[in-house]
């Protein structure tokens, strides 16, 4: 009884497999493709190769467009952020000046006025130092990102050019075979294999290039480290300025 059930289960599995396997696997399609009559390759060669080169060209354009748009976004973002940074700093300076004026009014003795001036100088110096450090860190980060983008673009362009040249060369070779009229199944298989190899080389190169993104980690860390150090220095300078002021200020 059990063996009968097993056999029926096997039959059912085979049936389902027959339906699904060709649709989920390119391998089946490729096998069938290998068996196609070699002469049909030449029959459809011109049309297919023209379409392939067109596709390559269009996708190259799409990449250029994506790169251009991406850089455009980056530039726009930087301009917006720089504008916001300026606005924030103007407002920050206004706030600080307003409180400095309050302190000046409250300083009625020479010692107090001296304490206020010292406090103002210390705070202003600390603010300026931090801002300069921040601006330098951000500029270095941006320059590093720009270099990474340039390198990526250049390497993808180079990989793309090499791929296109190899494809064109392979197509020309196959066209000559077709003109010679000596196309066999083996010729066709070798042609397809060459194209696959070209495709594989590009995809390998692509992964290597996209791996450049890892270099951003260093950029981000360096920027963050510089900003953190500048912030820590600011806090220390402010604490000292406050302490000195409280010790020196007499109403």
């Amino acid at each position: 009884m059990r063996s009968k059930f097993l056999i029926q289960l096997t039959l059912a599995t085979l049936l389902v497999g027959t339906i699904l396997a060709p649709n989920v696997s390119f391998a089946e399609r490729e096998d069938r493709d290998e068996q196609r009559d070699a002469t049909t390759v030449c029959g459809r060669f011109d049309g297919v190769s023209r379409e392939m080169l067109k596709t390559l060209s269009e996708r190259g354009d799409s990449f250029d467009e994506e790169d251009k748009q991406g850089r455009g976004h980056i530039e726009n973002d930087r301009m917006s952020l720089d504008s916001l940074r300026s606005k924030n700093r103007i407002q920050g300076d206004t706030n600080t000046e307003r409180q400095f004026k309050v302190l000046e009014k409250l300083a009625t003795t020479d010692a107090s006025r001296a304490a206020v001036r010292t406090f103002q100088s210390a705070v202003s110096a600390a603010l300026t130092t931090r801002r300069l450090a921040f601006d330098r860190a951000l500029a270095e980060y941006r320059a590093g990102l720009d270099r990474a983008l340039e390198e990526r673009k250049a390497r993808i362009d180079a990989a793309q050019t090499a791929m296109k040249q190899n494809v064109e060369s392979e197509l020309a070779r196959m066209k000559a075979e077709c003109s010679g009229g000596a196309v066999t199944t083996e010729t066709r298989s070798a042609f397809i294999s060459s194209l696959r190899s070209i495709q594989g080389r590009f995809q390998f190169e692509q992964r290597t290039i996209e791996g450049l993104a890892g270099s951003l980690n260093d950029l981000v860390e360096r920027k963050q480290e510089a900003i953190s150090q500048a912030d820590a220095a600011l806090r220390a300078a402010l604490a000292k300025a406050r302490s000195d002021f409280e010790a020196a200020f007499v109403r």
């Binding site: 392939m52 996708r59 994506e66 850089r71 696959r196 495709q199 996209e210």
Partner: peptide, 30 residues
Amino acid sequence: ATNDMANASLVSGNSTAVNNLGQFFDPNAF
């Protein structure tokens, strides 16, 4: 500074256009 790195995604390996570049070829076409 945090917001400035938002567009670093351009080099983060998610480019559809680059992926498409490597998919130019269908052996069944021949």
